[in-house]
Write a protein that binds this DNA or RNA. Structure first.
Lengths: 207, 207, 207, 207
DNA sequence: TATGAATGAGCATTCATTCAT
DNA sequence: GATGAATGAATGCTCATTCAT
């Protein structure tokens, strides 16, 4: 495969990717047939197989592109920010925004995790995401800004909060991405304790 | 349906539920056929349709039982605990432990969210989970132990951290559930900031 | 596969084998679709895949059964015949008769030789046939009845004449099998030379 | 069709014929797609349909050319040979050699026989081959060199031995064509009987 | 209760052929 | 002459479900 495509071919391919992602996201990967996709675009079945080796390969490409794109956006968001904590906040913001603007892909990434064939792709992508975020957490620890705890665990927790709040607040409840990002960042930085309670706890730990 | 079953029938049914859940979790719901299930148990196809109206109905029952069971465990864990923050910690611990002991079901719940037909079930279950946890967060706020923020957001954030750390640390990295639970609880209570940084922030906010 | 079949199942399977062999032989293996077969029998498509793993597997089974049957017939024909030359004649006769009664299978064996996937099966069967006939040729040589030449070549030549005359005389021209068998045997034993010519040749060789 | 081709066109066409024959012979006619052929040559699909009306027509042309070529070679081999028996031997030799040098085509001829659409072509070619050889056999009979038997049967038997030994000895076992030709000729002339046995048989028949 | 057999719509994929450029 | 793109009927196969026993 990996055909050399003309401009027209590029456009067709993109149409297919986009329409398929929509269908996969709304009906599920399995319940969406290749026929659904080509019929939806009003083209013959051969078109699909001209551009993709199989339904599965198309799905993998959608996943890979999604992960690539999210990563690109995150990197861009935190560039030129000297404070590591601010970098983390910026990353959270970029992620929530991306998930908001690419709801379809969010669902697909979650589905992919549930099937043996695709799970490795997702895990690799997630490891990449952790590897991307880890240095900033470590820098925060070194700068005395972040608690001296396993940075990997902290990073994962941040990713967990961000993903979950994005889904629930933005996708399900329809709140603005910025609000969810703010809430996620605040939670990640300070947790749930009240200032008084936190102070008491800090004092206790100082003993 | 809802047949009256003999003791032997009960056992058969349970075998089917368990084996199907295993297969669904490892291969995916769609890639697992009814034939896979009955062949795996060495029984005829009629057996399946004696106990379940359809593959879909079986799956719904698995999901419902899973949600019921998780809820039961959480309730039990936090009973008799007067401190609301401690109740939250106990709930996190119980959840992580349950997810550890029921990995299959965890995956199934995540898959179910990705398909129109099953998503409502999951959303209902999650709303229930939030509704269960919410009072404790509110109690914490009222007692001045927890920050005066939208309790629904805080609750969701807690669920997000808990689920994600359980998956990553326990299921994927194989760490003990207790450790993941401790990490999740700590993160939820205090966030990532170092004591010094937190103090500074608190001081700033006090202005 | 290799399902345990009830009597009814056995009958169904046989119907499929027979009808498919007919179709394969008259239209060709590839031009015969599974749909042709099941439609021809007025059954659903699932029936086919209940009894056979694939179209290819069915074809292999037809080939294997054909070779097994031909071999059985040949063995039976030459049993209890003390003279090796007579045994060869009997074998030729049995082969021609079988090919006459199983024209379909004859064509299928020939087709199978032309496709990489099936050729090994045919070659194995043919080696078996040679191995079966060889001892008789050797015995003929040892008894001074047959020329002292490479017995393998002689055996192959006999098989070649037999197969070809069976096809041309019996299948294509419709002559009786017995006649073709007689012609084949005569040719194999004496060749084409006239008595006078043969005598001269023998004399010359004796020098 | 029958396009007037430039020199370059002639070469292109020949490339297609040759490559297709190779693929048909090794993978089979049906399993070889037009795409396989044009991709294998690195040209577009239009090229194929510029030179051939269809895949089937291409195959027919390959078959026709093969038969024409074999016939040409045989005729050439037996020219200027006054002895009819020697002519037959020469024909056998030429055939085996041709089959050796054109293995691909041998397989294709055999396949063609197994499919309704192509079988008539093959049968016509074979009848031609018989018609070509028949006069020599008849001449042998008239000259008292060959047994007074149905010359058609004798001719067919010769063709059968030749084809089979060429396939088995030369194509499958890799022996030299000349050796197979010698064996085939010897078998055709004298059969399998030993001189002594033949003499006895001749004596008996003289009664 | 349970089984083997059967159904048939549906699926992913192939492929000979055509077409616009 | 040649290419990439498109067509769409047809193919081998799957599978949830039903049925006769």
């Amino acid at each position: 495969m990996t055909r050399r495509l003309t401009a027209r071919g590029q456009r067709r391919r993109q149409e297919l990717v986009e329409f398929a992602a929509d269908q996969f996201a709304s009906k599920g990967y399995h319940p969406t047939s290749v026929a659904d996709i080509v019929d939806g675009l009003g083209v013959g079945k051969g078109v699909f197989y001209w551009y993709f080796e199989s339904k599965e390969e198309l799905f993998r490409q959608i996943l890979a592109e999604a992960q690539r794109d999210l990563r690109r956006v995150q990197r861009h968001a935190i560039a030129d920010e000297p404070d590591p904590v601010r970098r983390i906040e910026a990353g959270i913001g970029a992620s929530v925004e991306w998930l908001d603007r690419n709801r379809r892909l969010f669902v697909l990434l979650e589905f992919a995790r549930t099937e043996e064939r695709f799970a490795p792709l997702i895990r690799m992508g997630e490891e990449q995401a952790v590897a991307d975020a880890l240095p900033h957490v470590k820098a925060g620890i070194d700068a005395g800004l972040i608690r001296r705890e396993d940075p990997l665990v902290l990073t994962q927790a941040i990713l967990g909060v961000t993903g979950h709040l994005a889904r629930v607040l933005v996708l399900e409840e329809g709140r603005p991405a910025a609000e969810a990002a703010r809430a996620a960042a605040a939670f990640c930085l300070e947790g749930v304790l009240s200032p008084a309670s936190a102070r008491r706890r800090l004092a206790r730990e100082a003993d």
